[in-house]
Nucleic acid binder design. Structure first.
Lengths: 194, 194
DNA sequence: AATAATGATATGTTTCTATGTATCAAGAAC
DNA sequence: GTTCTTGATACATAGAAACATATCATTATT
């Protein structure tokens, strides 16, 4: 339909994919229906700002108005942000199964304890840095072993597994916090487009 | 109404005012109704992207999705863009009168010649850098002296006045093309808000 | 004092987003 | 080969933006 905003939609889509999220996953995360996300990404709608901002925030993006003059510099800065590598399919799968299991547990036998775990797991899926599938499998098995009627020991085991996974992640994630070395001073000259 | 997009509206308003445009002027420039602009600036609507982009473009702004990580750096770049000083009321007035006169002339006696002049004048109002009111007045008188029935000499005079005005502007405007000296390397640390 | 320009508002109509729910074909995983 | 998952698409509905037009009080300008 050409609203001269296609590149925004493209960026949204790229950001979603860079995070390894499906439209449905982003839908859950943002509250925006999957059908709508699809329409947006295929340039079928002239969406409202609130929608765009909602989606952007879910993808850790910020909507900004940038002076034309500053565009080249901003683009250069933006490009310099190192994207996190995507987890493999297998890893995504393990993470999904872990999350599902915990969600079930929370649904069947709610507790502050489990809720905390749930949050932690979500946190992990967000960070989703490099992970061994083996490690993930171990965690998953520990989690899947838990039943609403399980002993505290079983739960503890799963908890510990998740906890150590989280710590490991916190470490490797730190590497991405402050990306590449300080950049050379940028210029504000004119510049060709992307 | 709080759409978490107030700052965008604020930026639009600030940009408009920085250009010395009234809501009606911006309306003409962008095609967006004045009433709508007012609503937008007072956070009364959750506007569509097309509207935002239209207005932004009229104000030489670009709508961008910026990774959270890059926000501080982008802000720093954006801030570094030196805004042009506003022309005084008196200058605005002179410019408006010149423009009106030429518009009338074009309407009454269209010609490629006049159209070119019209474009040039619009260009000047866009650049709107510092100008002596005296100089503007002189130009205005030259322009206002022209009637559809005027001699070529009269028209020539107006033309010359505008031409020299333009050249003078091109000079002083160059000073803003490359703003302040090269900046120090920026950092990508976290940062407080505006 | 009279005039013009400004931003905020009102109304009535048209258009389209946003949402919920559901289906579908293509491809991936088991 | 069957089941899941994916993105695209359909449809009905509610609510809101967009628009044209006009008014109004306030503030500048002459």
């Amino acid at each position: 339909m050409s609203f001269a905003t296609e590149h925004l939609a493209e960026r949204l889509k790229a950001a979603r994919e860079a995070k390894g999220l499906s439209q449905r996953a982003l839908s859950k995360l943002s509250g925006v229906p999957q059908s709508h996300i699809s329409k947006i990404e295929s340039h079928a709608v002239d969406l409202r700002i609130s929608s765009l901002v909602t989606l952007a925030h879910a993808l850790e993006l910020e909507l900004m108005l940038v002076p034309r003059q500053a565009l080249p510099a901003v683009r250069s800065v933006t490009r310099s942000v190192t994207p996190k590598p995507l987890p493999s399919r297998a890893e995504q799968r393990e993470l999904a199964r872990i999350q599902n299991k915990i969600n079930d547990l929370v649904a069947n036998a709610p507790s502050a304890h489990l809720a905390a775990l749930q949050r932690r797991v979500r946190e992990i899926t967000q960070i989703h840095s490099q992970l061994d599938v083996d490690v993930l499998q171990k965690v998953r098995r520990a989690v899947e072993a838990v039943e609403p009627s399980s002993s505290d020991a079983t739960i503890r085991q799963a908890e510990d597994a998740i906890h150590s996974l989280r710590n490991r992640l916190a470490h490797s994630a730190a590497a991405y916090k402050k990306p590449s070395a300080p950049r050379p001073a940028y210029q504000l000259e004119e510049d060709s487009d992307d």
